[in-house]
């Protein structure tokens, strides 16, 4: 079970109290009625599936009830940070020369995923 820091309550609480609510920083177009099919698809249907950091929305549904944003690493499941809804998207791209997540000399262990191929 994940431990999630609610930026409104100021406490890390068990995942049981929260509900995931999809990707963050996708603004509903102000002129939504006028946008093209492609723009609507981009807004509503198409999502990235990044390996690494993902920006997503959570709601402290069994706590304060507030929606907030979180940055989570999809590999380790670790929450990098959480912040209030409406705050700007933080820039967490690694500094040039920063160490990658895995040491360069580590060899992947053969797993089912490795055998069958990874999802892109």
């Amino acid at each position: 079970m994940l431990l999630i820091h609610c930026p409104y309550c100021g406490e890390a609480r068990a995942e049981l109290e929260f509900r995931a609510a999809g990707d963050a920083h996708i603004d509903r177009p102000a002129n939504i009625a006028a946008i093209s099919d492609e723009e609507f698809a981009e807004y509503f249907f198409l999502r990235d599936n990044p390996k690494g950091l993902i920006y997503e929305r959570w709601r402290h549904i069994h706590g304060c009830g507030r929606f907030f944003n979180a940055v989570r690493d999809t590999v380790s499941d670790k929450f990098v940070m959480t912040y209030k809804a409406g705050q700007p998207k933080p820039d967490l791209s690694p500094a040039p020369g920063a160490a990658p997540a895995l040491p360069a000399d580590s060899r992947p262990v053969e797993t089912y995923e490795a055998t069958e191929g990874r999802a892109e």
């Binding site: 609510a21 509903r28 709601r59 009830g65 929606f67 809804a85 409406g86």
Partner: peptide
Amino acid sequence: MHHMEDYLQTEFP
């Protein structure tokens, strides 16, 4: 309720 809160808090604050 969740749907309404979502829009109220994040799209129509």
